[in-house]
Design a protein around this nucleic acid. Structure first.
Lengths: 218, 218
DNA sequence: TGATCTTGTCTCACATAATGAGACAAGATT
DNA sequence: AATCTTGTCTCATTATGTGAGACAAGATCA
């Protein structure tokens, strides 16, 4: 369960249920365990979500993410033109560096991966689309926090900060002087070296410029 | 707003809000108009959803689908192994017929498109991933309703039934004697002719068998 | 075999928690 | 300056969601 509060209890509980189902809970009692809610409450709320297609149940009565979420997820992706427009630059960046490239946007106190281009290597960084990461960690985190030092330099790098063994370099995508997104390359330190910036900073910044141009940001 | 009731009012309202935002409502009053809910209620509920990332607001305070939905949508897709496994057969079917191919599963009194392979033609059928269609219409609807006549024949066809000008042929994907999905080709009647079955039935049924094989259904 | 868990489900008395009319400030139009 | 229209907030009211507990049906035990 994620502990956020919203002022509307039912919504908190319903979202906790969605998160629990997303994270693989299948049986009623698993949902109860994961959310900490009383069983009848889980049952009733889950039933309500099922009625709306946000949760579904298979023939064994297992709870699963509802198919309605597919369309909602699509709508969310499409509501962010930046993600669509960044796809090409991301792929170029991936091809130029050989490493996985991602686009992140800030979301409250976290950051969300909204576009990816995966490295062809067998050993590569994988950040699932939609993944919510810690805003306090990683080079993309530093960018999205709009750290003055980072903005002055035009990029940020990190080694094993968010996850051991992976290094990354990120650059801000700017709209005027506002950071609207962070574009990153990341890969295993074995390939990227302990000073990934030296190798990748230029390419990442170029990609950021490409995204800005494609998005028509001045 | 979709008028479904679930027994938990707050959930109904929250879902109505998600639907409204999905369908493009951007301002508070648009949400009010679309859902029929009182303004303070919309405001409070929307704020709650924003706190959880299911809705987001841009710098102009417009309401937009929340990025959290991206991950949930992914989870929903992945929870349906059939969709992943059907991708190849769908593409083969598309290539064999030149028309768009879709996989539908039943969801309550509707049907949801869970996988697609789009025709290369300029004029083609487009069914967005996650789209919820009428179970009562179209050849895929007949399949998912498990109509005896359809099951006996092994396929269904329709011309201009769900949407004027488009014809389709669908076959059931079976698990034992249970219909678990419908696989379809559809295109403009100008190309498919008024008797699409003659041309496509065999290919669609073959695709259904391929999906069953790939999914390990006996 | 019968006893004991553990499922999912449902009811219902209770008070928490959501409600929504109304008021407010701040822009935008007039 | 007067009038809409935004988004936002409060607060008295009670509708609404709550969850302990009971139930039936399997599963697993002895």
């Amino acid at each position: 369960m994620d502990g956020r509060l919203s002022g509307v209890g039912v919504v908190d509980k319903a979202v906790a249920l969605l998160a629990a189902v997303e994270s693989g809970a299948r049986t009623l009692n698993e949902l109860v365990g994961l959310t900490g809610l009383p069983r009848p409450t889980v049952h009733r709320l889950a039933a309500a979500l099922v009625a709306h297609g946000l949760i579904r149940r298979d023939e064994e009565l297992h709870y699963l993410p509802g198919l309605r979420l597919i369309a909602l997820g699509r709508a969310a992706s499409q509501s962010l033109p930046l993600a669509r427009v960044a796809q090409r630059p991301l792929e170029d960046l991936r091809d130029a560096t050989g490493e996985s490239a991602q686009l992140y946007v800030r979301e409250g106190e976290g950051r969300v991966c909204v576009a990816v281009a995966e490295s062809p290597h067998g050993l590569r960084t994988i950040v699932p689309l939609g993944a919510v990461l810690d805003l306090r960690r990683g080079s993309a985190g530093a960018v999205l926090r709009a750290e003055p030092a980072v903005l002055a330099r035009g990029f940020a790098d990190s080694v094993g900060e968010r996850e051991p063994g992976v290094a990354s370099v990120s650059a801000p995508v700017l709209h005027g002087d506002r950071v609207v997104a962070a574009i990153s390359v990341s890969g295993p330190v074995e390939r990227t070296s302990r000073e990934p910036a030296r190798r990748y900073a230029a390419a990442v910044m170029a990609a950021a410029r490409a995204v800005e141009a494609a998005a028509g940001l001045r």
